[in-house]
């Protein structure tokens, strides 16, 4: 029976897509805080600690179910998924690969560091023509994490991932 390591579990988790933005894996999203592997063989127990994103985001419970599913298909049935609220999730934890994947999917990644209490979003890039000449249409969008913007050069509307 091969050993299962933390790195292998992390690799499995990389195939779990965010249900709202499937171009991102949950690793890209930066919600995995900790992976513990206890025991070996039949007695293996995996504990995954995640930090949920938005409080009301319906994706949260889907992500939990998908994690169990992916780990289960790798032959590990004993999986616990724990939530850790503190420190709160922030878009600063989205990985560089995640930001790149957002851009490729037509979603502008957060323009500034979220540690500022209420970011001004002054330098939002258009994912289609890379112009920085953009304007906000609505602070709320198709998902809790997104706002609706428009490019003033190519005139395309686009989703903006809000700094949070």
């Amino acid at each position: 029976m091969p050993m299962t390591t933390q790195a292998q579990v992390l690799e499995l988790l990389d195939s779990v897509a965010d249900p709202e933005i499937p171009t991102l894996s949950i690793n890209d999203l930066g919600i995995i805080r900790d992976v513990e592997v206890h025991g070996t063989g039949q007695d293996i127990h995996v504990v995954i600690t995640i930090t949920p994103t938005y409080s009301g985001c319906p994706a949260t419970s889907v992500i939990e179910a998908d994690i169990r599913d992916v780990i289960g298909r790798a032959g590990i049935q004993n999986v616990s998924v724990k939530n850790r609220l503190q420190p709160a999730w922030t878009t600063d934890w989205i990985t560089d690969r995640g930001r790149q994947r957002l851009l490729e999917a037509g979603i502008s990644p957060p323009a500034c560091c979220a540690s500022h209490p209420l970011p001004d979003d002054t330098d939002v890039v258009c994912p289609y023509c890379q112009s920085h000449n953009t304007q906000v249409l609505s602070r709320f969008g198709s998902a809790p994490c997104k706002a609706l913007w428009r490019c003033s050069d190519c005139l395309e509307p686009f989703d903006y991932f809000k700094p949070h």
């Binding site: 938005y54 409080s55 009301g56 985001c57 319906p58 249409l137 609505s138 602070r139 709320f140 969008g141 198709s142 809790p144 609706l148």
Partner: peptide
């Protein structure tokens, strides 16, 4: 429409809280 989306987003946040 934008306001519809905004108000329901705020509602969703609050129900999550």
């Amino acid at each position: 429409l934008e306001e519809d989306i905004a108000l329901t987003n705020v509602a969703l946040d609050l129900i999550g809280h």
